[in-house]
Design a protein around this nucleic acid. Structure first.
Length: 569
RNA sequence: CGGGGUAUAGCGCAGUCUGGUAGCGCACCUGCUUUGGGAGCAGGGAGUCGGGAGUUCAAAUCUCUCUACCCCGACCA
């Protein structure tokens, strides 16, 4: 295809709002253009990449027997009211009304629609398992769209849903989907990790996220270099850290005006990890009396609110007590609170509970206690729990060694839904005994447009994008130098163009009347894997130049040899 | 949602403080020269200065208001 016939608006400067490599490069190289916050046009080069990603996704899904459908974007509120999610979804769901003033939404996800579709079209257990997916534009009114395609409001997603009579069948499809996602990411050529997502209170509700590894990723992952263990930092289980300190004598010391852990540690000349902080939160209380609970963490650890909320006795969502509430209940202000003789339920983080000797608030304003010890000074009336964020160096939950951190872009998420939607929408199939039963479901999302950004995050250098072959917009970039002046260059380039395309290769032929430097710069920016440069200089020796975008080396080959090399590749 | 900031040509920006009727670089068009890593010269096209209201003889500039967009935050004992 001739460059001159395509809309490829490359830019020397990136738009001021673009921050991350994928956003900057995809814009500069003319793949996408912003329309509004979080919504993007896909230009011809971008479309070609999208199409390749979709082709791979479709091929791998076909392999495990998933069937493609296409469901509507605009959905009646009625459907969402039936599942109860019309009121639950909140502002992230964009709502609109038609001329009759009936409510609709732009579908942010498709559980309701697919369940209803399934219910109307499948009635017998003989048709199970049934695995349906579509690739469609989604709209989510994100609080803060950013990073170009990585967190867009309008984006393209593959979402799939499976229906099963029993857990065993769901497990099989779930496992298929897991390996399908791995196969897709392998084919595209990405480094990734599958991580455990929210393990849930039950512990057996499988859910995995697929993260492409990239510094610009929005998620922080904890992983064990020594094993397959990986988890989102927010969700990773934090092990207890043993303490080898000596038990010391308890002493009360005046600490006037010293409140934060940082100040306490500095004032008393101890490490932050030898202090504990006591956070007062609202408890699930009865009656009109305000119930509180105390959460205790090591001074150098951070509370994980999601973990705290999951505990029995802690109100969900988490509410921190105000200073007034703390003073009313404990007679001291925040900043001087500690676990000793505190008249509240005590929930102590595993690592804090290991401390043999620690500093804490004295429950008396402007005093702290040093040399505190759990058994001697607090007793046994507390629960040991996991309520902190993991930190680098913690032991992995599988015991394989210290955790390391890295960043990831979540491109896939698979989880088991159970019968939540089939029950809510009253969808059943007849089982072998003729009984109506609500099938259980699995749900599988894959960010098609986001993965384009993820590829660029992982595959670029200072000059531009370096597309992996599987998703490159073209396989070969033919750069004809001064072709408008040189008949030899122009005719050789045209021959090569024709022969390569005849050999089944997708070719971008830069036939523009531009200077060499411009063409090279654009070629590097656009990032097509194979580049052939045709110039008068080489043609005098009967050669053209071949180089890969991902390699520094260049080879001189005869035109016919070049064609053969690329086609036989 | 809270805080901060920005809005001037397709992109990047200056001009705003101190009001006088819009400019620079890139991109685009024409011509000449140039031609192996983002050319030079000359000429040219392109802007409701985010919208509205106000002050003023006069507003990109001052005031009010609305909107859009960007950044940061949402873990405190």
């Amino acid at each position: 295809m001739k460059y001159s016939a395509l809309v490829i608006p490359t830019l020397r400067d990136a738009p001021a709002d673009a921050e991350v490599a994928s956003h900057i490069l995809l814009t500069r190289a003319g793949f996408i253009r912003r329309q509004a916050a979080g919504s993007y046009h896909w230009l011809p080069l971008g479309m070609r990449v999208l199409a390749k990603v979709q082709r791979i996704v479709r091929a791998e899904l076909a392999r495990i027997g998933a069937q493609e459908v296409l469901m509507p974007v605009v959905q009646p509120a009625e459907l969402w009211r039936r599942s109860g999610r019309w009121d639950v979804m909140g502002a992230e769901m964009l709502r609109l009304a038609d001329r009759q003033n009936r409510d609709y939404c732009l579908s942010p996800t498709q559980e309701e629609a697919v369940t209803e579709l399934f219910g109307r079209t499948v009635g017998s257990y003989k048709q199970l398992p049934c695995n349906l997916y579509h690739i469609q534009t989604k709209f989510r009114d994100e609080i803060r769209p950013r990073f170009g395609l990585m967190r867009a409001r309008e984006f393209i997603m593959k979402d799939g849903y499976s229906f099963h009579l029993d857990e065993r069948s769901l497990d099989e499809t779930y496992a298929d989907m897991y390996s399908c996602y791995a196969a897709i990411l392998d084919r595209i050529g990405l480094r990734y990790r599958a991580v455990e997502a929210d393990p849930g209170a039950m512990g057996d509700n499988d859910s995995h996220e697929f993260h492409v590894l990239a510094a610009a990723g929005e998620d922080r992952l904890a992983y064990s270099p020594a094993s397959d263990y990986a988890a989102n930092v927010e969700k990773a289980e934090a092990a207890a850290i043993a303490d080898d300190a000596e038990v010391e004598d308890l002493a009360k010391v005046p600490t006037p005006g010293v409140k934060t852990i940082e100040d306490v540690a500095a004032f008393l000349g101890v490490e932050q990890r030898r202090c504990v902080k006591t956070l007062i939160v609202h408890a699930t209380g009865s009656g009109d009396h305000l119930a509180l609970a105390a959460l205790v963490l090591r001074g150098d650890h951070k509370l994980n609110e999601a973990k705290a909320m999951r505990l029995n006795g802690v109100r969900r969502p988490l509410v921190f007590a105000t200073d007034d509430e703390i003073h009313a209940a404990l007679g001291a202000h925040a900043g001087s609170i500690g676990p000793i003789d505190i008249p509240l339920p005590l929930l102590v983080d595993r690592s804090a509970a290991e401390l043999a000797s620690f500093v804490c608030g004295a429950n008396q304003d402007d005093y702290h206690l040093v040399g505190a010890n759990w058994q001697r000074d607090v007793g046994t009336d507390f629960q040991t729990v996991d309520i902190r964020n993991v930190v680098e160096g913690d032991s992995a939950a599988d015991g394989s060694g210290p955790l390391r951190f890295m960043r990831g872009i979540e491109v896939g998420h698979i989880f088991k839904l159970g019968a939540k939607y089939t029950r809510a929408l009253n969808v059943t199939v007849q089982d072998a005994a003729g009984q109506d039963t609500a099938p259980i479901m699995g749900c599988y999302g894959f960010g098609v447009s986001r993965i384009v950004a993820a590829v660029v995050e992982q595959w670029h250098d200072d000059d531009g994008i370096i597309w992996p072959e599987a998703v490159a917009p073209f396989a070969v970039h033919l750069v004809a130098l001064n072709n408008s002046r040189s008949v030899a260059v122009q005719s050789t380039a045209e021959d090569l163009h024709e022969q390569l395309e005849a050999g089944g290769l997708e070719v971008l032929f830069d036939d523009r009347d531009e200077r060499p430097g411009v063409k090279f710069a654009d070629a590097d920016l656009i990032g097509i894997p194979h580049r052939i440069t045709i110039g008068e200089r080489g043609l005098k020796e009967g050669v053209v130049e071949y180089r890969r975008r991902d390699a520094a080396t260049m080879e001189k080959l005869s035109p016919s040899m070049t064609v053969r090399r690329l086609i036989d590749r």
